[in-house]
Amino acid sequence: MTAPAPRHIPVLGREAVEMLSPRDGGTYVDATFGAGGYSRAILDAADTRVIGIDRDRSAIAAGFDLVDRSNGRLTLVEDRFSNLADICAAQGLRDVDGVVMDVGVSSMQLDEAQRGFSFRLDGPLDMRMGRDGPTAADVIARASEADLASIFYIFGEERHSRSVARAIVAARLEAPIATTRALAEIVAQVVWAKPGDIHPATRTFQALRIFVNEELDELQLALSAAERVLKPGGRLVVVSFHSLEDRIVKNFFNARGKAPGGSRHLPETAQAAPSFRILTKRPVTPDEEELRANPRARSAKLRAAERTDAPALPPGELPAWPSLKTVMRGG
């Protein structure tokens, strides 16, 4: 008899579920289903209903067994988590008791060479979390040198972004850059790493993945959607893995978690009441035991807030950084 596969344990999973505080009869949204770790923990914690969302069809298919074992308490939806509010409406839900998000690429995606997320595994330069839209290879082939430099600098915080972009443009004149190994080797020629440093291609790959999947835009839209669907007292818990994501979450909670200050030089006006009560003054990070078990957790930060009864605020404008649509059409 084949031994069952070990259960996936999400980063900061115990802390996330404790913050979510599931209760009998509650409805919760696992906005980034992945391997189902959060959904399983929420279902185990109380007699709850869970809506699991993932844009990755493979993750949804792998979750069907958990659906079968949940006795009708788990529903999986293949979609972007930015569509969270519409998904809840389609499920007949006007408000929910909690939303949890684990932002970024999953271990399953990183470990599958054919997905093209990792420079450590040679595979096609894909990087799409879903199955639609341009691949990373398409971006590398079509984006201008200036756009590539902006992508690497903004989304990867790569200090050598211009050198990397220049090297890519020169290399693609010789042959298409279609594999992860080919791109990693090009980057390694212009980004030098000291012993013990991260791989020279780390930031370039991060930037491409974020750009191809429009991850930061998706996160900002998903946070606003969660604000609209959470009932008073409902909780939003977000685990992020790098500074760009964490900054967006922190700024969102700060903007929603305190009343705007007035000015003694201007007439007094009605101020919007805070729509969230912040639960984590400082982000929660993994303890030593978790880091020993999962080194990938080292950069994780958890932030959480509780919905007040104030109306949701309008979504903020998305930053004016390079967009996938514009770059691919050469605009």
Rank of each mutant, 00 (worst) to 15 (best):
Q206R: 08
R73I: 11
A89R: 15
P322W: 01
N213L: 08
A193D: 14
A297N: 07
E288C: 02
A300Y: 01
A146K: 09
R162E: 12
F33K: 12
I60Q: 04
P311L: 02
E174L: 15
E78F: 03
T308I: 03
A5M: 12
D56P: 13
E245P: 04
T204G: 01
R94V: 11
D102K: 13
E214L: 03
T285L: 10
E145K: 15
S144Q: 04
L84H: 01
P232W: 00
G36H: 02
L43E: 00
F241H: 00
D30M: 02
Q114P: 04
P314G: 12
P124T: 03
R23M: 11
A149Q: 09
V237E: 05
K281W: 07
R166C: 14
F64P: 00
G26R: 04
D47L: 00
F33N: 10
D138G: 01
T2Q: 09
L12W: 00
T204P: 03
A149F: 06
E15I: 08
D86G: 15
E288V: 09
K194H: 08
D24V: 00
P311R: 07
A320D: 15
I140K: 01
A312G: 04
H199D: 15
R247L: 12
Q189C: 13
L74I: 11
P6N: 03
F276M: 11
S161L: 12
R162N: 07
L230I: 07
T135S: 12
G25Q: 07
A146V: 13
V96I: 10
M101H: 06
S224A: 15
E290Q: 13
G257R: 01
D102S: 12
L121A: 12
R264K: 00
I51L: 13
L219H: 02
K194E: 11
A193M: 13
V187W: 01
R159A: 08
R115F: 09
Y153S: 10
M101C: 07
V284R: 05
G316S: 12
I168W: 02
E290D: 11
I87V: 09
A165S: 15
V169L: 02
R228L: 04
A59M: 07
I154R: 09
S163A: 15
R172C: 12
H8N: 13
H199Q: 10
A113K: 14
E288I: 11
G92W: 05
R120E: 15
R120H: 15
R162G: 02
M108D: 15
Q114T: 14
V187S: 04
T32Y: 12
M328G: 05
A90K: 14
